[in-house]
């Protein structure tokens, strides 16, 4: 079997490079350099999306990968990781960054409860400010606010324990049963599956917990009981 430390996949967004999250970083970095140099002319000019999985990466580590790619006439376009540390490092380097959650089918993920069926997602314990995008193959739970200009895209449900004022898209792969909950529901735009709604202008808005879901082919928002 071929070594899985570094794998390449071509796609419409350029070259996706996936790095094993559990091998020691110096070995991974060396393997990456070696693989790129094997076919240097082939990779030259490529736009790279780097998927480092669960590995937390420091700014200098990520910076050295970026510089290494640039020396080979490639550009680091986006970083994907399950680690907030890596995402913060990427943001600090002005790179596009996507926080991803392990796919619900991921065998290496945490086992889901013993008695009740459940699905996986990510929990974010901070306020999402303008410009931040959060994507998940599962659900998203935010303990904090979602400010205007921030965006959450989840294949599953979205639960905001705070004020929702940005854009959210639940059931992004076409799940009409997905829901969005918030303690104070005032999204810029709310999408569930293929449906879109905007909050009605409401001067006398009183914060209260609400749930949004699809009924009769439209998005309904109801007080949570």
């Amino acid at each position: 079997m071929r070594d899985q430390t570094v794998t390449f996949k071509g796609g419409k967004d350029g070259l996706q490079v996936t790095l094993d999250a559990h091998v020691d970083w110096p070995l991974v970095a060396a393997a990456l350099t070696e693989r790129l140099d094997e076919q240097r002319s082939f990779f030259s000019g490529a736009r790279v999306t780097l998927d480092v999985g669960a590995r937390p990466m420091r700014k200098d580590e990520l910076g050295s990968v970026k510089a290494m790619l640039e020396r080979r006439e490639m550009s680091l376009w986006m970083v994907m990781s399950e680690s907030q540390t890596t995402i913060d490092s990427a943001t600090a380097l002005d790179l596009r960054a996507d926080l991803i959650s392990p796919a619900p089918t991921d065998a290496e993920g945490l086992p889901v409860g013993t008695e009740d069926e459940g699905t996986q997602g990510i929990m974010v314990r901070r306020t999402l400010r303008s410009g931040r995008t959060l994507r998940s193959q599962g659900h998203v739970v935010v303990y904090g606010d979602v400010n205007p200009g921030a965006e959450i895209i989840a294949v599953g449900d979205i639960i905001i324990w705070g004020r929702l004022r940005g854009n959210v898209h639940a059931g992004a792969d076409g799940d009409d049963s997905a829901v969005v909950c918030a303690l104070d529901m005032r999204p810029t735009q709310l999408r569930i599956s293929g449906y879109i709604s905007i909050a009605p202008p409401d001067k006398r808005h009183k914060p209260k917990p609400e749930v949004a879901f699809i009924r009769n082919r439209q998005i309904i928002v109801e007080a949570w009981r």
Partner: peptide
Amino acid sequence: EVSAVRDADRIIGLLEAD
């Protein structure tokens, strides 16, 4: 004004990440 506050929010996010 809303646009200035939106940009300030982005900046605060970047500072927090740093």
